Each structure stands twice: as C-alpha cells, then as structure tokens.
Amino acid sequence: MGDYVTILITRSADVLRRVEAVVASVIDSVSKNEPPILVSHNRTTWNNISFDPSKGLVMNYSPSVKTIRLNSANSAQKFALTMKVLSKVHQLVRTDTFCTKRELYYQDVKLFPGQSTLDDIVDDVACMLQVPRWNLHILATSKGLVAGDLFFTSGDGEHIDCSSTGTGVLIPNHVQGISNLQTEAEFVLVVEKDATFQLLLDQKLRQYVGPHILITGKGFPDVNTRLFVRLLWQHFRLPTLCLVDADPHGLEIMSTYKYGSKAQSFEANHLTVPSLRWLGILPSEVQRLIPSTNGLMQLTERDIKKANELLTRPYLSAQPLWKTEIEYLIKTKMKAEIQCLSQIAIDFLSNIYLPNKIRNSSWL
C-alpha cells in the first residue's frame, strides 16, 4: 500500500486557505440547518499505518477517518475546542507569529480540560489540514539536549556552540528556524536518558571515540528532539547510533527515532531516521557483560506485554535481528539499564564499551 504524503507547505497563504475552507464548511452546514462535522484521519489505529523502509511508519493513502460532531454529546466540547484552535492557527499564521502549546494552554487554562487535550487537538488539526504541525505556528516545548561538535544559528539569530557546554544545550523550540549548521563530527549518538548523557559529558567521551554529536530526548523523545535528529541526518548524512536500556521501553524509544510513531505517522517524512542503528545495550550481551544478576531486573508483566506488542510492529519484518533480541528478552525475562555497566568499572561505558562497539561497527 502507498503512504499518505504530508505536504510541506511553505506559503502561509496555503495554510490560511485550508483553515478557511474548514470554517466555510461548518458555516455552510449551519446555513442548511445541518449539524456541522469536522473530519480528520484517524491517528490511533494501526489499520491506517503501513511500513516503508525508506520512511518508517506512514499513514495509508486512504485511511479511515474520525468525525467530531457538534450535535453529539460525546464530541461537542471537542468540536468547540477544535474550532478555537483553528481560529488561533489562523491568527498566528496571518500575523507570522509563533507560540508554544504550553503558552496557548495558559492563555485560557479554564477552556481546556488539560494540556494533553490541547496537544491532541493540535495534532488532529495538523492531520485534518494535511500540514506538518510546525506550519500551524504552534510549537512544542523542547526538553531534549545536544552537546558535542556542532555549531548552528537559532531562529532568533543566536549563534550556538554545542562544544562549549558541560551540561548540554536545550534543543530550540523552532527547529525549522535553525541555519548555518557546521560540524566535524564523525557520527551522532542518541542516548535514552539524561543521566547517561551527563555521564558521557563528565567522562569526556570525545577523548575515547573522537568528534561526535551527543543527543538525549530525556526518555521518550519529544517532537523537537526527533525533528532535530532528522535535521542533522538530512544535513550531514552522518551515521546515527542509538544507546538505550535493554528493555522494552528502550526498544520503543529507539524505534520511535528510527521509524516514528503511530500518532505522528502523517509526519513521518520529517521525524524519522530510517538509517539509525541500534548500538546497545543489546539484551543478548547483558549477561555476558554482567555475569552477576545484581545489576539485572526481572521483566514486569507490563514489560512482557510491551515486548510481545513490539513483535507485532510492521517494521519487525525488516529487522530480523531486532526480533531475535526481543525474543531473547522475553525468554530470559531479564532487563538491564545502561547504568548497570558502571558496576564493572565507573568509566566502562565511555572508556571500553562504546569505543569498542563503535570501532568494530558492532551495531544492528
């Protein structure tokens, strides 16, 4: 099956026309004494998703849709809130201004039941209009960090030197505004946790593996971190490696960087790095590295459920070695965090594990 192509709209006029077309449809329904309906492609079902090895998880050409009806008790509130967001998008795009989702929420806290409700509506509006979310001029608030051999200019004209930080530089909210990217890095290393990110900075990983760019999304990555990793890959075409815990949650995080997510499948062209490689920690190497079970933990029932769910993902057909590692995880029922390598030696991760893996191209 084909994929649902997200159209990158560069002219604000096109976004405005799409918003106005939705509003005109609502007005037309009301004028005919018909209950107005908003229609959006359904982002919550795997039935709408296909796997494209060159893009990741993408929405099908003819996906099923969901409707938001004003005359339904179940969706009347969401209808009103969606119209409010459409109005705000029109205002922001027309005046060429930006705001974060957090700022939008706090402009009228009583209006939205919670931040997550607003976040979901913004995503639905982007999908409804068939535009990347950032073209709505509503930005996500970044939580990811970057450090290492990278220089760039942010959207507000600030010159950023990521090599001069000891704790990392916050990834800009407006990733599309970044320009003048420069690096002499040999690879990009994405790590799951902030604790690992800070440890590698403290232990001066560059001395052991050479110039590189280090990134963390602080757990499950926000959209800006994913956009930023994709931007670096598009601009430099450097090898992109991923270091996560040897557990189902770590695998989910790595899969999101590489292949994207179900909810953001309509934006896959801008959020995925299909060439990303799994550097570690591999479930199959944990017990060899840590013979003692002191650093290992039992999989919980939730972990096992997540691991089995991962085995059903459409991209597993293209990753037989991933499948083997997940099956090994389920079989042994043991998981390990990156920090457990410190039990071997405090600098084992930066001085031995990562240099050897990178030098020998030992990744999946």
Rank of each mutant, 00 (worst) to 15 (best):
M1P: 00
I7C: 03
L16Q: 03
V19P: 11
V23S: 06
A24D: 11
V26T: 00
S31L: 08
K32N: 13
E34I: 13
L38F: 10
S40H: 14
N47H: 12
N47V: 02
I49Q: 05
I49N: 02
S54W: 01
K55M: 13
L57E: 03
N60C: 10
P63H: 00
P63C: 00
P63V: 01
L70Y: 12
S72V: 04
N74Q: 15
K78I: 15
F79G: 02
F79A: 01
K84D: 15
V85F: 09
L86I: 03
S87K: 12
H90Q: 14
V93P: 01
V93R: 02
D96I: 12
L104D: 01
L104I: 00
D108R: 09
T117L: 06
L118M: 06
D119V: 15
I121N: 02
V122I: 03
D123N: 13
D123A: 09
D123I: 07
C127A: 04
L129R: 01
N135W: 01
I138L: 10
I138M: 10
S142A: 12
G144R: 08
L145N: 08
A147H: 05
F151A: 10
F152H: 06
T153A: 06
T153H: 04
T153R: 11
S154I: 11
G155W: 02
G155M: 04
H159G: 12
I160Q: 01
I160M: 00
C162T: 00
C162E: 05
S163I: 01
S164E: 11
G166E: 13
G168C: 00
L170H: 11
N173T: 08
Q176W: 00
I178D: 05
I178V: 07
A185L: 06
L189P: 00
D194V: 06
T196G: 02
F197Y: 09
L201I: 05
L201S: 03
D202T: 15
L205M: 05
R206I: 14
R206C: 12
Y208H: 14
V209G: 00
H212S: 09
I213E: 02
T216P: 13
G217D: 03
K218H: 08
G219C: 05
G219A: 02
G219V: 11
P221C: 06
D222S: 07
V223F: 09
N224A: 00
T225Y: 06
R226S: 09
R230W: 11
L231V: 05
W233P: 00
L241K: 05
L241G: 03
L241I: 14
L243W: 04
A246M: 04
G250W: 10
I253V: 08
M254D: 07
M254A: 15
S255Y: 00
P274H: 01
S284L: 05
E285R: 07
V286A: 15
L289M: 08
T293S: 13
N294F: 08
M297N: 13
Q298N: 15
D303N: 06
K305C: 12
K306N: 09
L310S: 02
L311S: 05
R313M: 14
P320H: 05
L321Y: 06
K323D: 11
T324D: 11
L329N: 03
I330P: 07
K331A: 08
M334N: 11
A336D: 02
E337S: 09
E337A: 13
Q339Y: 01
Q343I: 08
Q343M: 13
A345N: 14
D347E: 10
N351Y: 14
N351S: 14
L354W: 07
L354F: 07
K357Y: 05
R359W: 10
S362C: 09
S362R: 06
W363I: 01
